[in-house]
Design a protein around this nucleic acid. Sequence first.
DNA 1: ACGAGCCTCCCCCGCACGGGGGAGACGATC
DNA 2: GATCGTCTCCCCCGTGCGGGGGAGGCTCGT
Lengths: 220, 220
Amino acid sequence: MPVTVLLVDDEPLVRAGLRAVLEAQPDIEVVGEAADGASVIPLVRQLRPDVVAMDVRMPLMDGIEATRAVLRTVERPPKIVVVTTFENDEYVYEALRAGADGFLLKRARPAEIVHAVRLVAEGESLLFPASVRQLAAQYGDEGGNRAARAAMERAQLTEREAEVLRLMTRGLSNAEIAARLVVGTETVKSHVSGVLAKLGARDRTQAVIVAYESGFVAPG
Amino acid sequence: MPVTVLLVDDEPLVRAGLRAVLEAQPDIEVVGEAADGASVIPLVRQLRPDVVAMDVRMPLMDGIEATRAVLRTVERPPKIVVVTTFENDEYVYEALRAGADGFLLKRARPAEIVHAVRLVAEGESLLFPASVRQLAAQYGDEGGNRAARAAMERAQLTEREAEVLRLMTRGLSNAEIAARLVVGTETVKSHVSGVLAKLGARDRTQAVIVAYESGFVAPG
DNA sequence: ACGAGCCTCCCCCGCACGGGGGAGACGATC
DNA sequence: GATCGTCTCCCCCGTGCGGGGGAGGCTCGT
Protein backbone atom coordinates (compact mmCIF):
# COMPACT_ATOMS: atom_id res chain seq x y z
CA MET A 1 0.00 0.00 0.00
CA PRO A 2 1.23 3.46 -0.89
CA VAL A 3 2.03 6.19 1.60
CA THR A 4 -0.89 8.62 1.64
CA VAL A 5 -0.16 12.30 2.15
CA LEU A 6 -2.28 15.33 2.98
CA LEU A 7 -0.86 18.68 1.93
CA VAL A 8 -1.57 21.76 4.05
CA ASP A 9 -0.29 25.08 2.76
CA ASP A 10 -1.93 28.41 2.04
CA GLU A 11 -0.04 28.84 -1.19
CA PRO A 12 -1.46 26.84 -4.07
CA LEU A 13 1.90 26.97 -5.80
CA VAL A 14 3.62 25.20 -2.95
CA ARG A 15 0.90 22.59 -2.81
CA ALA A 16 1.24 22.01 -6.53
CA GLY A 17 4.97 21.68 -6.22
CA LEU A 18 4.77 19.19 -3.38
CA ARG A 19 2.09 17.25 -5.21
CA ALA A 20 4.16 17.07 -8.38
CA VAL A 21 7.21 15.88 -6.50
CA LEU A 22 5.39 13.33 -4.39
CA GLU A 23 3.02 12.00 -7.02
CA ALA A 24 5.98 11.22 -9.23
CA GLN A 25 6.68 8.41 -6.79
CA PRO A 26 4.77 5.18 -7.34
CA ASP A 27 4.61 4.46 -3.61
CA ILE A 28 3.36 7.89 -2.53
CA GLU A 29 -0.13 9.20 -3.06
CA VAL A 30 -1.38 12.71 -2.29
CA VAL A 31 -4.92 12.15 -1.06
CA GLY A 32 -5.90 15.71 -0.30
CA GLU A 33 -5.04 19.36 0.18
CA ALA A 34 -5.96 22.08 2.61
CA ALA A 35 -5.27 25.81 2.45
CA ASP A 36 -5.39 26.53 6.19
CA GLY A 37 -5.01 24.81 9.50
CA ALA A 38 -8.65 24.98 10.42
CA SER A 39 -9.74 22.56 7.74
CA VAL A 40 -7.10 20.00 8.60
CA ILE A 41 -8.91 18.04 11.27
CA PRO A 42 -12.02 17.07 9.32
CA LEU A 43 -9.84 16.20 6.35
CA VAL A 44 -7.59 14.03 8.47
CA ARG A 45 -10.60 12.24 9.92
CA GLN A 46 -12.03 11.71 6.47
CA LEU A 47 -8.92 10.82 4.51
CA ARG A 48 -6.83 9.23 7.26
CA PRO A 49 -3.51 10.05 5.59
CA ASP A 50 -0.26 8.48 6.74
CA VAL A 51 1.55 11.79 6.62
CA VAL A 52 0.51 15.43 6.82
CA ALA A 53 2.88 17.93 5.22
CA MET A 54 2.00 21.09 7.08
CA ASP A 55 3.11 24.65 6.53
CA VAL A 56 3.93 26.45 9.75
CA ARG A 57 2.89 29.93 8.69
CA MET A 58 -0.73 30.01 7.66
CA PRO A 59 -3.75 32.25 8.15
CA LEU A 60 -6.61 31.32 10.50
CA MET A 61 -4.80 28.56 12.26
CA ASP A 62 -1.04 28.12 11.95
CA GLY A 63 0.83 24.86 11.71
CA ILE A 64 1.59 24.74 15.40
CA GLU A 65 -1.97 24.92 16.59
CA ALA A 66 -3.08 22.64 13.79
CA THR A 67 -0.47 20.07 14.80
CA ARG A 68 -1.56 20.24 18.40
CA ALA A 69 -5.21 19.99 17.43
CA VAL A 70 -4.69 16.98 15.20
CA LEU A 71 -2.64 15.08 17.74
CA ARG A 72 -5.10 15.87 20.50
CA THR A 73 -8.35 15.09 18.76
CA VAL A 74 -7.59 12.40 16.21
CA GLU A 75 -6.95 8.86 17.29
CA ARG A 76 -4.07 7.07 15.60
CA PRO A 77 -3.01 10.44 14.24
CA PRO A 78 -0.90 10.75 11.10
CA LYS A 79 2.76 11.65 11.09
CA ILE A 80 3.22 15.36 10.74
CA VAL A 81 6.02 16.98 8.78
CA VAL A 82 6.34 20.69 9.26
CA VAL A 83 7.17 22.56 6.08
CA THR A 84 9.09 25.78 6.34
CA THR A 85 11.08 28.24 4.27
CA PHE A 86 13.82 29.04 6.75
CA GLU A 87 15.92 26.87 8.99
CA ASN A 88 15.67 29.46 11.69
CA ASP A 89 11.91 29.57 11.71
CA GLU A 90 11.04 29.73 15.36
CA TYR A 91 7.65 28.27 14.59
CA VAL A 92 9.29 25.03 13.60
CA TYR A 93 10.55 24.51 17.08
CA GLU A 94 7.13 25.15 18.52
CA ALA A 95 5.64 22.68 16.10
CA LEU A 96 8.17 20.04 17.06
CA ARG A 97 7.32 20.62 20.68
CA ALA A 98 3.68 20.30 19.74
CA GLY A 99 4.42 16.81 18.50
CA ALA A 100 5.40 17.14 14.85
CA ASP A 101 7.61 14.31 13.63
CA GLY A 102 10.04 16.34 11.60
CA PHE A 103 10.51 19.35 9.43
CA LEU A 104 11.21 19.97 5.80
CA LEU A 105 12.76 22.90 4.01
CA LYS A 106 10.88 24.12 0.97
CA ARG A 107 14.07 24.54 -0.97
CA ALA A 108 15.09 20.95 -0.39
CA ARG A 109 15.71 18.87 -3.47
CA PRO A 110 12.79 16.69 -4.64
CA ALA A 111 14.60 13.49 -3.77
CA GLU A 112 15.10 14.75 -0.25
CA ILE A 113 11.47 15.68 0.14
CA VAL A 114 10.42 12.23 -1.02
CA HIS A 115 12.93 10.66 1.30
CA ALA A 116 11.65 12.66 4.23
CA VAL A 117 8.05 11.62 3.65
CA ARG A 118 9.01 7.98 3.39
CA LEU A 119 11.04 8.16 6.57
CA VAL A 120 8.36 9.69 8.75
CA ALA A 121 5.86 7.27 7.27
CA GLU A 122 8.09 4.52 8.62
CA GLY A 123 7.87 6.14 12.01
CA GLU A 124 11.27 7.74 12.16
CA SER A 125 12.05 11.12 13.54
CA LEU A 126 13.32 13.68 11.08
CA LEU A 127 15.24 15.80 13.48
CA PHE A 128 18.64 14.70 12.27
CA PRO A 129 18.35 13.30 8.80
CA ALA A 130 21.49 13.25 6.68
CA SER A 131 19.61 15.26 4.09
CA VAL A 132 19.18 18.18 6.41
CA ARG A 133 22.83 18.01 7.37
CA GLN A 134 23.87 18.07 3.76
CA LEU A 135 21.44 20.86 3.07
CA ALA A 136 22.82 22.92 5.89
CA ALA A 137 26.36 22.39 4.63
CA GLN A 138 25.24 23.19 1.11
CA TYR A 139 23.89 26.55 2.10
CA GLY A 140 27.10 27.70 3.61
CA ASP A 141 26.93 26.58 7.18
CA GLU A 142 30.46 26.34 8.49
CA GLY A 143 30.64 23.86 11.32
CA GLY A 144 27.61 22.85 13.31
CA ASN A 145 24.27 21.69 12.05
CA ARG A 146 22.26 24.83 11.50
CA ALA A 147 19.02 23.14 12.36
CA ALA A 148 20.45 21.75 15.55
CA ARG A 149 21.99 25.11 16.36
CA ALA A 150 18.69 26.83 15.83
CA ALA A 151 17.02 24.28 18.06
CA MET A 152 19.54 24.97 20.80
CA GLU A 153 19.32 28.72 20.49
CA ARG A 154 15.62 28.80 20.71
CA ALA A 155 15.39 26.09 23.33
CA GLN A 156 16.04 28.64 26.08
CA LEU A 157 17.27 26.06 28.51
CA THR A 158 17.29 27.15 32.11
CA GLU A 159 20.61 27.22 33.94
CA ARG A 160 19.89 23.96 35.61
CA GLU A 161 18.78 22.30 32.41
CA ALA A 162 21.93 23.46 30.64
CA GLU A 163 24.04 22.04 33.44
CA VAL A 164 22.18 18.73 33.26
CA LEU A 165 22.63 18.63 29.49
CA ARG A 166 26.33 19.26 29.92
CA LEU A 167 26.60 16.29 32.25
CA MET A 168 24.56 14.21 29.83
CA THR A 169 27.15 14.96 27.17
CA ARG A 170 29.74 13.50 29.50
CA GLY A 171 27.90 10.20 29.46
CA LEU A 172 26.52 10.36 32.98
CA SER A 173 23.35 8.53 33.99
CA ASN A 174 20.51 10.22 35.84
CA ALA A 175 21.70 8.76 39.12
CA GLU A 176 25.23 10.01 38.52
CA ILE A 177 24.01 13.46 37.60
CA ALA A 178 21.90 13.50 40.75
CA ALA A 179 24.94 12.61 42.86
CA ARG A 180 27.01 15.28 41.15
CA LEU A 181 24.43 18.01 41.63
CA VAL A 182 23.46 16.78 45.07
CA VAL A 183 19.75 16.52 44.24
CA GLY A 184 17.31 13.64 43.92
CA THR A 185 17.10 11.47 40.84
CA GLU A 186 13.51 12.58 40.36
CA THR A 187 14.72 16.12 40.07
CA VAL A 188 17.24 15.12 37.44
CA LYS A 189 14.56 13.24 35.52
CA SER A 190 12.49 16.37 35.63
CA HIS A 191 15.29 18.47 34.17
CA VAL A 192 16.12 15.83 31.59
CA SER A 193 12.51 15.80 30.49
CA GLY A 194 12.65 19.56 30.14
CA VAL A 195 15.77 19.33 28.03
CA LEU A 196 14.30 16.65 25.79
CA ALA A 197 11.09 18.60 25.27
CA LYS A 198 12.86 21.85 24.54
CA LEU A 199 15.33 20.29 22.14
CA GLY A 200 12.69 18.21 20.43
CA ALA A 201 14.72 15.10 21.29
CA ARG A 202 13.18 11.73 21.94
CA ASP A 203 15.79 10.45 24.33
CA ARG A 204 19.07 11.51 25.95
CA THR A 205 21.08 10.19 23.04
CA GLN A 206 19.35 12.55 20.62
CA ALA A 207 19.81 15.38 23.10
CA VAL A 208 23.55 14.72 23.19
CA ILE A 209 23.60 14.69 19.39
CA VAL A 210 21.88 18.08 19.27
CA ALA A 211 24.40 19.35 21.80
CA TYR A 212 27.29 18.31 19.59
CA GLU A 213 25.71 19.38 16.33
CA SER A 214 24.84 22.78 17.70
CA GLY A 215 28.20 23.45 19.22
CA PHE A 216 26.76 23.43 22.74
CA VAL A 217 29.67 21.12 23.42
CA ALA A 218 32.68 20.85 21.18
CA PRO A 219 34.54 17.61 20.67
CA GLY A 220 38.22 17.56 21.44
CA MET B 1 34.19 7.24 56.09
CA PRO B 2 37.24 7.73 53.90
CA VAL B 3 37.73 6.17 50.50
CA THR B 4 40.06 3.20 50.86
CA VAL B 5 42.51 2.45 48.06
CA LEU B 6 44.68 -0.52 47.17
CA LEU B 7 47.72 0.24 45.01
CA VAL B 8 48.93 -2.35 42.52
CA ASP B 9 52.10 -1.58 40.60
CA ASP B 10 55.37 -3.39 40.11
CA GLU B 11 57.38 -0.22 40.55
CA PRO B 12 57.80 0.84 44.15
CA LEU B 13 58.41 4.39 43.02
CA VAL B 14 55.03 4.65 41.38
CA ARG B 15 53.34 3.16 44.40
CA ALA B 16 55.10 5.67 46.63
CA GLY B 17 54.07 8.51 44.38
CA LEU B 18 50.44 7.46 44.31
CA ARG B 19 50.48 6.93 48.05
CA ALA B 20 51.93 10.37 48.66
CA VAL B 21 49.38 12.03 46.43
CA LEU B 22 46.40 10.16 47.79
CA GLU B 23 47.35 10.15 51.45
CA ALA B 24 47.61 13.92 51.34
CA GLN B 25 43.82 13.89 51.13
CA PRO B 26 41.93 13.60 54.42
CA ASP B 27 39.15 11.59 52.82
CA ILE B 28 41.36 9.06 51.05
CA GLU B 29 43.26 6.26 52.72
CA VAL B 30 45.71 3.88 51.08
CA VAL B 31 45.10 0.57 52.84
CA GLY B 32 47.57 -1.61 50.99
CA GLU B 33 49.98 -2.22 48.16
CA ALA B 34 50.76 -5.08 45.80
CA ALA B 35 53.62 -5.49 43.37
CA ASP B 36 51.94 -7.88 40.95
CA GLY B 37 48.52 -8.95 39.82
CA ALA B 38 48.68 -12.38 41.40
CA SER B 39 48.60 -11.04 44.93
CA VAL B 40 45.67 -8.74 44.30
CA ILE B 41 42.79 -11.10 44.98
CA PRO B 42 43.72 -12.15 48.51
CA LEU B 43 44.52 -8.56 49.35
CA VAL B 44 41.18 -7.37 48.02
CA ARG B 45 39.37 -10.03 50.04
CA GLN B 46 41.29 -9.09 53.14
CA LEU B 47 41.30 -5.30 52.87
CA ARG B 48 38.07 -4.76 50.94
CA PRO B 49 39.19 -1.45 49.42
CA ASP B 50 36.77 0.88 47.68
CA VAL B 51 39.13 1.42 44.79
CA VAL B 52 42.00 -0.50 43.25
CA ALA B 53 44.54 1.54 41.31
CA MET B 54 46.01 -1.07 39.02
CA ASP B 55 48.95 -0.89 36.64
CA VAL B 56 48.27 -2.58 33.33
CA ARG B 57 51.78 -3.77 32.60
CA MET B 58 53.05 -6.03 35.33
CA PRO B 59 54.97 -9.30 35.61
CA LEU B 60 53.29 -12.59 36.53
CA MET B 61 49.75 -11.38 36.02
CA ASP B 62 49.00 -8.15 34.17
CA GLY B 63 46.30 -5.66 34.99
CA ILE B 64 43.84 -7.09 32.51
CA GLU B 65 43.87 -10.58 33.92
CA ALA B 66 43.94 -9.24 37.44
CA THR B 67 40.92 -7.04 36.74
CA ARG B 68 39.02 -9.94 35.28
CA ALA B 69 39.98 -12.19 38.17
CA VAL B 70 38.93 -9.70 40.82
CA LEU B 71 35.58 -8.99 39.21
CA ARG B 72 34.89 -12.67 38.71
CA THR B 73 35.86 -14.02 42.07
CA VAL B 74 35.21 -11.26 44.57
CA GLU B 75 31.70 -10.36 45.59
CA ARG B 76 30.89 -6.67 45.81
CA PRO B 77 34.17 -6.01 44.02
CA PRO B 78 35.99 -2.70 44.34
CA LYS B 79 36.11 -0.09 41.61
CA ILE B 80 39.15 -0.57 39.44
CA VAL B 81 41.16 2.25 37.94
CA VAL B 82 43.70 1.20 35.37
CA VAL B 83 46.95 3.11 35.61
CA THR B 84 48.99 3.57 32.48
CA THR B 85 51.81 5.62 31.04
CA PHE B 86 50.49 6.13 27.54
CA GLU B 87 47.10 7.12 26.22
CA ASN B 88 47.50 4.67 23.40
CA ASP B 89 48.23 1.71 25.59
CA GLU B 90 46.27 -1.08 23.98
CA TYR B 91 46.15 -2.89 27.30
CA VAL B 92 43.97 -0.14 28.69
CA TYR B 93 41.25 -0.97 26.25
CA GLU B 94 41.42 -4.62 27.16
CA ALA B 95 41.21 -3.73 30.82
CA LEU B 96 38.15 -1.57 30.24
CA ARG B 97 36.55 -4.41 28.38
CA ALA B 98 37.44 -6.64 31.29
CA GLY B 99 35.39 -4.38 33.53
CA ALA B 100 37.68 -1.68 34.79
CA ASP B 101 35.87 1.52 35.74
CA GLY B 102 38.30 3.99 34.26
CA PHE B 103 41.89 4.72 33.50
CA LEU B 104 44.45 7.12 34.77
CA LEU B 105 47.56 8.53 33.19
CA LYS B 106 50.67 8.42 35.33
CA ARG B 107 51.64 11.90 34.24
CA ALA B 108 48.32 13.34 35.34
CA ARG B 109 48.50 16.13 37.88
CA PRO B 110 48.00 15.11 41.52
CA ALA B 111 44.68 16.94 41.74
CA GLU B 112 43.43 14.99 38.76
CA ILE B 113 44.50 11.69 40.22
CA VAL B 114 42.71 12.49 43.44
CA HIS B 115 39.68 13.60 41.52
CA ALA B 116 39.64 10.40 39.50
CA VAL B 117 39.77 8.20 42.59
CA ARG B 118 36.94 10.12 44.21
CA LEU B 119 34.80 9.86 41.11
CA VAL B 120 35.10 6.13 40.62
CA ALA B 121 34.53 5.67 44.34
CA GLU B 122 31.22 7.42 43.78
CA GLY B 123 30.45 4.91 41.11
CA GLU B 124 31.03 7.00 38.04
CA SER B 125 32.70 5.88 34.90
CA LEU B 126 35.98 7.54 34.06
CA LEU B 127 35.84 7.10 30.34
CA PHE B 128 35.13 10.73 29.60
CA PRO B 129 36.25 12.83 32.52
CA ALA B 130 36.98 16.47 31.90
CA SER B 131 40.44 15.93 33.34
CA VAL B 132 41.37 13.50 30.62
CA ARG B 133 40.01 15.85 28.00
CA GLN B 134 42.10 18.68 29.36
CA LEU B 135 45.07 16.41 29.59
CA ALA B 136 44.69 15.33 26.01
CA ALA B 137 44.46 18.94 24.89
CA GLN B 138 47.43 19.84 27.04
CA TYR B 139 49.66 17.34 25.33
CA GLY B 140 49.04 18.75 21.91
CA ASP B 141 45.96 16.97 20.70
CA GLU B 142 44.34 19.15 18.09
CA GLY B 143 40.68 18.34 17.77
CA GLY B 144 39.25 15.08 19.01
CA ASN B 145 39.65 13.47 22.39
CA ARG B 146 42.82 11.43 22.12
CA ALA B 147 41.53 8.83 24.52
CA ALA B 148 38.30 8.50 22.62
CA ARG B 149 40.16 8.39 19.34
CA ALA B 150 42.43 5.69 20.65
CA ALA B 151 39.38 3.76 21.80
CA MET B 152 37.84 3.99 18.36
CA GLU B 153 41.02 3.03 16.56
CA ARG B 154 41.58 -0.02 18.59
CA ALA B 155 37.94 -0.99 18.74
CA GLN B 156 38.19 -2.63 15.32
CA LEU B 157 34.50 -2.42 14.69
CA THR B 158 33.18 -4.72 12.01
CA GLU B 159 31.53 -3.17 8.97
CA ARG B 160 28.11 -3.88 10.32
CA GLU B 161 28.95 -2.49 13.75
CA ALA B 162 30.33 0.68 12.22
CA GLU B 163 27.15 1.09 10.20
CA VAL B 164 25.03 0.56 13.29
CA LEU B 165 27.11 3.08 15.22
CA ARG B 166 26.67 5.58 12.42
CA LEU B 167 22.90 5.21 12.66
CA MET B 168 23.12 5.51 16.42
CA THR B 169 24.82 8.86 15.97
CA ARG B 170 21.81 9.92 13.92
CA GLY B 171 19.59 9.34 16.92
CA LEU B 172 17.89 6.20 15.68
CA SER B 173 16.45 3.60 18.04
CA ASN B 174 17.18 -0.10 17.70
CA ALA B 175 13.86 -0.68 15.97
CA GLU B 176 14.53 2.14 13.53
CA ILE B 177 18.00 0.82 12.78
CA ALA B 178 16.53 -2.62 12.23
CA ALA B 179 14.01 -1.21 9.75
CA ARG B 180 16.72 0.74 7.96
CA LEU B 181 19.04 -2.24 7.64
CA VAL B 182 16.21 -4.67 6.99
CA VAL B 183 17.17 -7.02 9.80
CA GLY B 184 15.59 -8.04 13.08
CA THR B 185 15.78 -5.91 16.19
CA GLU B 186 17.58 -8.73 17.95
CA THR B 187 20.30 -8.51 15.36
CA VAL B 188 20.63 -4.80 15.93
CA LYS B 189 20.81 -5.34 19.67
CA SER B 190 23.57 -7.80 19.06
CA HIS B 191 25.56 -5.29 17.02
CA VAL B 192 24.89 -2.52 19.50
CA SER B 193 26.20 -4.72 22.29
CA GLY B 194 29.30 -5.34 20.23
CA VAL B 195 29.82 -1.63 19.71
CA LEU B 196 29.33 -0.85 23.39
CA ALA B 197 31.75 -3.55 24.47
CA LYS B 198 34.40 -2.57 21.96
CA LEU B 199 34.16 1.10 22.76
CA GLY B 200 34.04 0.56 26.49
CA ALA B 201 30.74 2.42 26.57
CA ARG B 202 28.00 1.71 29.06
CA ASP B 203 25.10 2.71 26.88
CA ARG B 204 24.36 4.08 23.42
CA THR B 205 24.70 7.64 24.63
CA GLN B 206 28.30 7.08 25.67
CA ALA B 207 28.94 5.32 22.37
CA VAL B 208 27.68 8.36 20.48
CA ILE B 209 29.91 10.58 22.61
CA VAL B 210 32.94 8.47 21.77
CA ALA B 211 31.96 8.65 18.10
CA TYR B 212 31.93 12.45 18.23
CA GLU B 213 35.00 12.79 20.39
CA SER B 214 37.01 10.47 18.21
CA GLY B 215 36.00 12.07 14.96
CA PHE B 216 34.14 8.95 13.84
CA VAL B 217 31.40 11.40 13.04
CA ALA B 218 31.95 15.12 12.68
CA PRO B 219 29.37 17.68 13.70
CA GLY B 220 28.19 20.06 11.02
C1' DA C 1 37.82 -30.75 6.52
C1' DC C 2 38.23 -27.68 10.13
C1' DG C 3 38.21 -23.51 12.77
C1' DA C 4 37.67 -18.40 13.02
C1' DG C 5 35.11 -14.50 12.40
C1' DC C 6 30.96 -12.35 11.12
C1' DC C 7 26.03 -11.83 10.61
C1' DT C 8 21.80 -13.31 11.83
C1' DC C 9 18.14 -14.46 15.24
C1' DC C 10 16.36 -16.31 19.70
C1' DC C 11 15.56 -16.71 24.88
C1' DC C 12 15.23 -14.60 29.70
C1' DC C 13 15.82 -10.86 32.78
C1' DG C 14 16.44 -6.47 35.40
C1' DC C 15 16.44 -1.84 35.26
C1' DA C 16 17.12 2.78 33.75
C1' DC C 17 14.59 5.66 31.11
C1' DG C 18 11.00 8.71 29.77
C1' DG C 19 5.84 10.20 29.81
C1' DG C 20 2.14 11.96 32.45
C1' DG C 21 0.51 13.68 36.28
C1' DG C 22 0.84 16.56 40.63
C1' DA C 23 2.78 19.53 44.36
C1' DG C 24 5.39 22.64 47.50
C1' DA C 25 8.91 26.49 48.01
C1' DC C 26 11.13 30.41 46.46
C1' DG C 27 12.08 34.72 43.98
C1' DA C 28 10.86 38.00 40.51
C1' DT C 29 7.57 40.57 38.28
C1' DC C 30 3.34 43.03 37.87
C1' DG D 1 -1.47 40.34 46.70
C1' DA D 2 -1.33 37.58 42.73
C1' DT D 3 1.04 35.49 39.04
C1' DC D 4 4.71 33.38 36.75
C1' DG D 5 8.92 30.61 36.18
C1' DT D 6 12.27 27.82 38.27
C1' DC D 7 13.84 24.17 41.14
C1' DT D 8 12.78 20.59 43.91
C1' DC D 9 10.52 16.03 44.80
C1' DC D 10 6.84 12.47 44.45
C1' DC D 11 3.65 8.91 42.28
C1' DC D 12 2.48 5.37 38.59
C1' DC D 13 3.46 3.03 34.41
C1' DG D 14 5.10 1.07 30.01
C1' DT D 15 8.95 -0.13 27.41
C1' DG D 16 13.26 0.37 25.25
C1' DC D 17 17.62 -0.91 26.51
C1' DG D 18 21.48 -3.70 27.63
C1' DG D 19 23.58 -8.12 29.82
C1' DG D 20 23.78 -12.95 29.69
C1' DG D 21 23.39 -16.87 27.39
C1' DG D 22 22.94 -19.78 22.99
C1' DA D 23 22.66 -21.19 18.02
C1' DG D 24 22.71 -21.71 12.94
C1' DG D 25 24.67 -20.29 8.41
C1' DC D 26 28.05 -18.00 5.86
C1' DT D 27 32.72 -16.95 4.00
C1' DC D 28 37.54 -17.22 4.28
C1' DG D 29 41.95 -19.19 5.16
C1' DT D 30 44.71 -23.10 6.48
